[in-house]
């Protein structure tokens, strides 16, 4: 998150440079996840050998982790609301909670991956393994990056270097975080709940 020099001047459209950059990035990310989801849908139910998704998926477990990520979006936006009214304590609490929920989600995914692996699913075992691990892996990588950035923000906040005037930093990270969350909303439905 760079401190763009343009923040010194207002822009021709009145839109913040960095916010526009983030939205452009997210718009292009729709094509990235679109491509990954398309590959999953193309090969849905096409695996010639097992293990198959219906044997592996643990819907209650995944529902909990989907819920965790969803709630992290709520805490993220509360962190933004906190910094916008200058509530430093609230900012720290909600940033911390969001990062924690994010880490919880990642741990859940790590557990799920190892569990599936133990039951014989790997990147090379069949089309399901290939498309599932790559799609959810890409998403997990995005969450991981988000957690790292959230922790960086938290450190800045704890050292008093994230003031009300820098709320844009939190807003930008928030946009990224919510986007990663909505991608999971799509994955949770298309991959887990709708089975062939």
């Amino acid at each position: 998150m760079s401190h763009a020099p343009a923040a010194l001047e207002t822009t021709a459209t009145g839109i913040d440079n960095r916010k526009l950059l983030m939205w452009l990035f997210l718009a292009s990310e729709t094509l990235l996840f679109g491509s990954l989801i398309a590959a999953y849908l193309l090969y849905r139910g096409q695996s010639v050998v097992g293990p198959y998704p219906e044997e592996l998926f643990d819907i209650p477990f995944t529902s909990v982790s989907a819920f965790v990520l969803l709630m992290s979006s709520v805490t993220m936006v509360l962190a933004l609301a906190a910094i916008q009214r200058g509530d430093q304590r609230g900012l720290r609490i909600w940033l911390f909670t969001t990062a924690l929920l994010g880490m919880l989600f990642i741990s859940g995914q790590a557990f799920e991956f190892t569990e599936f692996n133990r039951e014989g699913l790997s990147l090379s075992s069949n089309l399901f393994g290939t498309t599932f691990f790559v799609l959810t892996g890409f998403h997990g990588a995005h969450v991981t990056v988000g957690v790292l950035v959230l922790l960086s923000l938290l450190v800045m906040a704890l050292r008093g270097r994230l003031t009300r005037s820098q709320s844009m930093n939190v807003e930008l990270v928030g946009l990224y975080w919510h986007f990663v969350d909505v991608v999971w909303i799509a994955i949770f439905t298309l991959v887990y709940l709708i089975q062939p």
């Binding site: 090969y43 695996s47 010639v48 990147l123 069949n126 089309l127 498309t131 790559v134």
Partner: peptide, 11 residues
């Protein structure tokens, strides 16, 4: 060894 374009695995 993923199977995206691997015909033997149905890719």
């Amino acid at each position: 060894g993923a199977n995206f374009f691997n015909m033997a695995a149905g890719g």
